[in-house]
Structure formats: structure tokens, C-alpha cells
């Protein structure tokens, strides 16, 4: 009896540890970041663990979702439709929409999700997320600071990275750089299957050890970080607790700044 209880405690304990070892990532996903022509693109908003395609959290109704193109803001919150996203281990409430890109330039999609209550930490997480799509190579908005409370401002075009390039960004909280910000980096290791609202079973890479699942890096004294991209695909960066809000409904809140970048192989 004692032994089995101990075993259970151990099992639960190790499960909790392994859950904590992987980072939550708010995704604003579309398959291609650098398009040759405009047209309609599909977007999926999923709160998940992208490296493992693991536990997908239920998103509440987002606070804000908009797009900026040539400094003009267009509210997309009302276009969001709820979907159920299937991870390799569960399903979670997520959202989708589509958007027609007309002309050339950068479109910055920005999502402020509802704070998510993480039971294992007895705290809320709110990952304010940017994802940038470009048409025809004309740079218009990618480096803009768009005034989010927690924001990563890119120093390299998030859609024009070769595999092996360095991606740099400035972590900002309330418009000010966050010195030595803690940043989690994760690879989108399972291809999202757009039509089926799920992750592909097949993993692209295998991590030799848990430290490689969620890579933890830090910004310098000026809030600037850099990361060499080792593989083609989408990479997420989450600067933890960068935003000014630290409390929600009487509990601790981590207001994180997330950005997604996509690298392609030189062929």
C-alpha cells in the first residue's frame, strides 16, 4: 500500500515536473510567412506546447486581435471563430480566421489572449503574440513597435531568415527595454495540419534532453537578445513576465511577449 502510494506520488510529481519543463506558447499560425503574391491566408490561434505538440490549453475569448499594414490598424477580433485543436495528447479550445492580403508589404498580426489560469502554478499567463507576414518582399511595418504592453520588437525580418541566420529582438515592457529578460525559445516541431485543426504526429527533430525542448536564453542589459536558428521552420520566442501587469483576479499574472519567426533552407 505504502509503496504504491509512494509510486503514485512519484509519478504525479514527475508528471508535474515534466509539464513545467515545457513552455506554453501562444501561436498565431499560418503556413507561409513570406508570400510571393497576396491573397487569402488562413490563421490559427492555438495555445500549446509546440515542440512536443503536447497539452493544448483552452483559450478564452481573446481581448484583442488586429493586423497592422502600412501603419493602419484593422480590428479582426470579430472575425475569430472558435475551433477545437487536437494535440497529440488532448484537445483544446482555439480560434481561427482568414484574412485577405492585398498589395505588397508587411502585415503584423497581434493577439492579446485572455489570461489563462495555470493550475499547476496557481497563476495566470497572458502571452501577447506577434506574427508577421510579408508579400512580395517590400518592407513596410516589420520593425515597428506597435505599442503592446509586452512586445518583442524584431531587429531582423522575422519572415526573411535563412537557416543558420541569427534572429535578434528587443524585449519591451510598457515601451521600455527589459534588461536581462528571460526568453524561452521553442521549435514548432510538429507541422500543423490546417484542414484538420491538429498537429502532425511526426516530429521533425528529437531533443536529446529536456533542456533542448524549451531553450532558455536571456536578453542583455539593453533587453536585446539574439538566437542562431539551426533549422528551417517556425520558431517561437516568449519573453516571460515582460509586461507591466503582474496580477489578475487576485493571483499572479505573467504577461509575456511572444513573436514567431520562420527560417528557410538555402537551396
Amino acid at each position: 500500500m505504502k509503496k504504491s502510494i509512494l509510486f503514485l506520488v512519484g509519478l504525479v510529481g514527475s508528471m508535474m515536473i515534466s509539464i513545467n519543463a515545457f513552455a506554453h506558447f501562444q501561436m498565431v499560425y499560418t503556413p507561409e510567412a513570406a508570400l510571393e503574391k497576396g491573397g487569402e491566408i488562413e490563421l490559427k490561434l492555438v495555445f500549446t506546447h509546440p515542440f512536443e505538440a503536447g497539452h493544448t490549453m483552452d483559450m478564452g475569448a481573446p481581448e484583442q486581435f488586429f493586423v497592422i499594414h502600412k501603419e493602419k490598424k484593422n480590428d479582426l477580433l470579430k472575425t475569430l471563430k472558435p475551433i477545437i485543436w487536437k494535440s497529440l495528447t488532448n484537445t483544446g479550445n482555439a480560434y481561427e480566421t482568414s484574412y485577405k492580403l492585398r498589395g505588397m508589404g508587411d502585415w503584423i498580426f497581434a493577439l492579446t489572449p485572455a489570461p489563462y489560469y495555470e493550475g499547476s502554478e496557481d497563476a495566470y499567463i497572458q502571452q501577447i503574440t506577434k506574427m508577421i507576414v510579408n508579400v512580395a518582399g517590400a518592407p513596410t511595418d516589420w520593425d515597428a513597435e506597435i505599442g503592446l504592453p509586452a512586445e518583442i520588437v524584431p531587429l531582423d525580418k522575422p519572415y526573411a531568415l535563412w537557416t543558420g541566420n541569427v534572429f535578434r529582438g528587443v524585449v519591451k515592457g510598457d515601451g521600455k527595454p527589459v534588461p536581462f529578460a528571460e526568453i524561452e525559445v521553442e521549435y514548432l516541431n510538429h507541422e500543423p495540419v490546417m484542414g484538420k485543426n491538429k498537429f502532425a504526429k511526426k516530429a521533425k527533430v528529437k531533443a536529446p534532453q529536456d533542456a533542448f525542448v524549451t531553450l532558455a536564453i536571456k536578453a542583455d542589459a539593453n533587453g536585446v537578445f539574439s538566437f542562431g536558428i539551426p533549422k528551417a521552420g517556425w520558431w517561437g520566442f516568449a519573453a516571460l513576465g515582460a509586461g507591466p501587469s503582474t496580477e489578475f483576479k487576485g493571483k499572479e499574472l505573467s504577461q509575456d511577449a511572444v513573436i514567431w519567426v520562420k527560417a528557410v533552407d538555402m537551396k
Binding site: K37, G38, R102, G103, M104, V135, A136, G137, A138
Partner: peptide, 16 residues
Amino acid sequence: LCSCWDNGDDTITCEG
């Protein structure tokens, strides 16, 4: 850079 699209009303717009 130049990208053109059909406005769907018998006109074409190009952006450069």
C-alpha cells in the same frame, strides 16, 4: 518590386 492583383471589377491594380 511589383505586385498586381485583379480587383474583380474589370480593373487591375499594381503596387510597386
